[in-house]
């Protein structure tokens, strides 16, 4: 699929799709161009994930750890399509079947950075969004990237998460924008010896960002219960298992017998529950946490 063959759609503040979130900006864009599938639900639980273009191995591991569970919580990942943290955040999200929105610093027909051609196609193919406020053929300029950041911050309903940022990183601009918009700013701490984490560590130290150690720090800070736990209670098999285990710890075979379910189904359910942290296994027996 050639990118140029995919239609570009333009929306203005008068359009039905126009996201309400953007009107909170001091200088909202006059129009937006997008490729992909517009769905207002994308922005209901959206989180901007930004960070250094020069991502280290640490930043990569942090993303591999946090993004899957964010996706499991139904969070849309918004980022800037730049290399480093942005690219990894988009990619990781797509790999897990999550929803992502990329906000470009140039026009939609200008593929920048060029290495991300495949990612571009993947985002459109996964019914996600690629957005820009600039006309399709506008080349990205030094000044367009910081402007782009206000849209990234503006579209996120849960706040902005900064993964790795040096002391003068552009991500700090996004953090500042979010703060002005009164949106929560989250930062992942890093080694104090690493210059790649100097910016994020400083944000935490000065109390301008909330420290994030796991997904729960982001999702439940909004007063939202963890979706995965909520779902567990709604699922009849899972709530039956929770009831059984509340009385006594049991082995897989015992649970299967008591619920008259076959061992394959039970195994699958127990794994999912253990991943959601509703139950725990030790020496072959399951316990409620």
């Amino acid at each position: 699929m050639k990118i140029s063959h995919i239609p570009i759609i333009e929306i203005t503040p008068d359009s039905r799709e126009w996201p309400e979130l953007l009107n909170q900006l001091k200088d909202p864009p006059k129009q937006l161009y997008y490729r992909g599938t517009w769905d207002a639900a994308l922005f209901e639980k959206s989180l901007a994930v930004v960070g250094s273009r020069r991502m280290t191995g640490y930043g990569q591991r942090v993303l591999e750890m946090l993004i899957p569970s964010l996706v499991a919580e139904g969070v849309t990942i918004i980022s800037g399509f730049m290399y480093g943290v942005d690219t990894k955040a988009h990619q990781e999200c797509l790999d897990c079947g999550g929803k992502t929105v990329a906000v470009l610093g140039g026009g939609l027909d200008v593929l920048y950075p060029p290495e991300n051609e495949k990612l571009y196609e993947q985002i459109v193919g996964a019914h996600c969004l690629i957005i820009s406020e600039y006309p399709p053929d506008q080349q990205p300029q030094l000044w367009t990237f910081p402007r782009r950041n206000r849209i990234v911050a503006g579209l996120s309903s849960l706040g902005v998460l900064i993964i790795e940022a040096g002391e003068k990183s552009g991500s700090l601009i996004t953090a500042e924008l979010a703060r002005k918009l009164k949106k929560p700013v989250f930062a992942v701490p890093g080694p104090i010896t690493s210059s790649a984490c100097a910016g994020t560590n400083k944000l935490i130290k000065e109390g301008r960002a909330k420290m994030v150690l796991n997904t729960g720090d982001i999702v439940s800070s909004q007063g939202l219960p963890l979706r995965t736990q909520e779902e567990a209670l709604k699922n009849p098999a899972e709530s039956n298992i929770l009831d059984l285990l509340a009385a006594e710890p049991l082995t897989t075979d015992e649970i299967a017998h008591k619920l008259s379910l076959n061992i394959i189904e039970i195994s699958q359910i127990l794994t999912i529950m253990a991943i959601k942290n509703t139950i725990e296994e030790e020496n072959g027996k399951y316990y409620v946490i």
């Binding site: 591999e64 899957p68 499991a72 790999d95 897990c96 079947g97 999550g98 794994t271 991943i275 942290n277």
Partner: peptide, 16 residues
């Protein structure tokens, strides 16, 4: 591996 399966696997890497 389909994306949903990938999601389970990646969460398992962290949780387990």
């Amino acid at each position: 591996i389909c994306p949903e399966a990938q999601l389970i696997l990646k969460q398992a890497v962290v949780n387990f």
